[in-house]
Design a protein around this nucleic acid. Structure first.
Lengths: 362, 362
DNA sequence: CTGAAAGCGCTTACAG
DNA sequence: CTGAAAGCGCTTACAG
């Protein structure tokens, strides 16, 4: 916007607080713009001590705030880290406590390093492309992208990226995830030990190489080792894990399997909690009639009655590892890709009961 | 970054996908940069139809993405809407399902209008000042700011702002909130009808003119009309509503009041759910021993056993009203400040029991 | 309908 | 240690 005579005129009445620029500070300090810039950016070895002090003082009294858009344009990159979260139209992916808490931790850590967090709820590949480029983001963090999307994403931009909860065959991928296979295995083994032989698996669709697929494999492999097979009708697939009506329907389905099924592994605490409540409403008690194991160890797993036995993962660690890896790659462009797989463990609470080997009694 | 001979040289090996600019497109289309700019920005009445089509085609095949930092610098404002969320150091304010779901809805609606959402977890006033200015944000949405902060925030910048869940005496304030007073009153009235006379109020601190204070007032006024007073020890204050240990301590406190208290109004479902689970663990049954009313009507209120009677508020409406008000003020700068207070209602479920007027029996 | 000029507020690269 | 020049990719304001 040019500073024409009439914009000045209007400002007289509008009382817009004037924007302070490097130039203003330079004039006031009787130095060049570059010297002020050096002070602002901490290149103090390029400025004499006295001048630096004086300039710092003026910067403070004038409440100078750097114009991030100008800086980004000149440097060809910004201090923005784009966070890409898959969103299904009409749903709210942040109503998942897992996603929400993870995002919160990520943003906090990003801010700690001085980055700005721009959140993009993405539905299409075009969304990703646009968001990745338009703000010259310094780096990007992806949540829950699928294998087949990752290669495409890589070709879109060469800024450092970290993928959370993604499996991929792409080499040189920086990623943070958990041992989903083990999580599934742990649940299966625990059910087995407690005498369960007829078990259900409840989850969103197990897309190729997805988190869910790995949990399912760990679960199936372990059951198989114990000569148990999971029949097709014991596999409940929820198209949405946040839509109440979808979850409710699955609860009814499981309720109808009473007697034929003694236990169910539900791949999130959020869903598992709905199952506990929902089953109770239909007269089925957890764990007396059906035992349940959840996933995540979110606060909600302690708010149900009975409290949920669940697979624990460390969310805040997942978040900080992701940001730390990104930060290393941003600081030193030659830094290699890093991947971290966090461990999981089973937290024993009250939603699983021991039954006789005939699959009926306590 | 200047395009010197050696940066070109390096690029030869780096294979950075080249950034396409207006200039590149202009050259390819044999028109001036301005004509391309007009097409990109939809000022089609300034361009002949044939040229427009041709340029559009080139834009597409070249995957042109506008450089938002350059645009923002030239226009003196960006398409970013800053979302300010109060955060307490060491806690994660997004682990509150209410905040998380609200944020998700806001971001979705912001994206619908073509804005970018930058999330700022703010701890100090300096955080707000910096975040408000540095990106030339087009507008800002504040969550849960207190009365005494709002005036200061106003003086920081004159971009359009909308406050969610804030009470303030500042005139010309655009805000969206709910009828907190009524929410408190509804809970008190319901307890009264069900025969409860000795009631507790559980919440975070009731800062001056805060959401909590208004709920408390509605609650107290209603009890008073029925000649009931809430004694000081029946007022449980939680310094944090997300820290499990803090909530746990409050649960113990309420448990110790068994017999002296027959009901408790807990100002969020999240906390209320912890109370239901926590009390059960100490052998106190809800609602038989203590009745509970929550607030928000979040999914969790249906996942507890018993399901929570709660005060419902419409989160997605709160979010879209906030964004819509902001959008109107952005489109037409002369648009007046708007405030909306959403209604609340009591959702009756199973966490409150009727007791005899002597305060003991069913 | 089209375009050349100046400017947004900063940084890089270089000369003193 | 300091600063004048050129440039980042766009827009505004204006002349044709």
């Amino acid at each position: 916007m040019k500073n024409t005579w009439y914009t000045r005129f209007i400002n007289l009445f509008w009382e817009e607080p004037p924007t302070i620029t490097l130039k203003d500070i330079a004039k006031e300090a009787n130095v060049s713009l570059m010297t002020v810039s050096n002070v602002v950016n901490g290149n103090l070895h390029k400025v004499s001590k006295e001048k630096a002090e004086e300039i710092k003082h003026i910067l403070e009294t004038r409440h100078y705030v750097q114009n991030a858009t100008a800086r980004s344009l000149a440097k060809a990159h910004s201090n923005i880290v784009a966070i890409m979260l898959r969103n299904v139209r009409g749903e709210n992916s942040m109503s998942s406590p897992h996603n929400a808490a993870l995002l919160g931790e990520i943003i906090q850590r990003l801010q700690f390093y001085g980055y700005y967090a721009m959140i993009n709820l993405v539905e299409t590949r075009e969304d990703i492309a646009r968001n990745l480029k338009s703000w010259n983001a310094r780096g990007a963090i992806f949540l829950g992208m699928l294998d087949n999307e990752i290669e495409q994403i890589y070709s879109l931009s060469s800024i450092p990226m970290v993928f959370i909860d993604s499996y991929s065959n792409v080499r040189q991928l920086s990623s943070v995830g958990i041992d989903d296979y083990k999580g599934g295995a742990l649940a299966a083994e625990y059910f087995w030990e407690k005498g369960h032989r007829s078990i259900a698996f409840v989850s969103p669709p197990d897309y190729e190489n997805s988190v869910i697929q790995h949990r399912l494999r760990g679960f199936l492999d372990t059951l198989e080792r114990h000569q148990i097979t999971l029949t097709a009708d014991h596999r409940l697939v929820l198209e949405s894990d946040v839509e109440p009506s979808v979850v409710e329907r699955a609860v009814q389905k499981l309720a109808s399997m009473r007697g034929r099924v003694t236990a169910a592994f539900v791949t999130s605490d959020q869903m598992a909690a709905s199952f506990v409540g929902g089953l109770y409403a239909t007269g089925i008690r957890v764990p007396e009639d059906i035992s349940i194991i959840g996933f995540d160890n979110m606060p909600i797993s302690r708010q149900t009655t009975p409290q949920l036995t669940t697979i624990e993962q460390n969310l805040s660690q997942k978040a900080s590892f992701a940001v730390d890896i990104l930060e290393r790659r941003l600081k030193t462009p030659s830094a290699p890709a890093e991947s971290r797989i966090l461990d999981v463990r089973l937290v024993e609470r009250a939603s699983v009961i021991r039954i006789g080997s005939n699959g009926k009694d306590k």
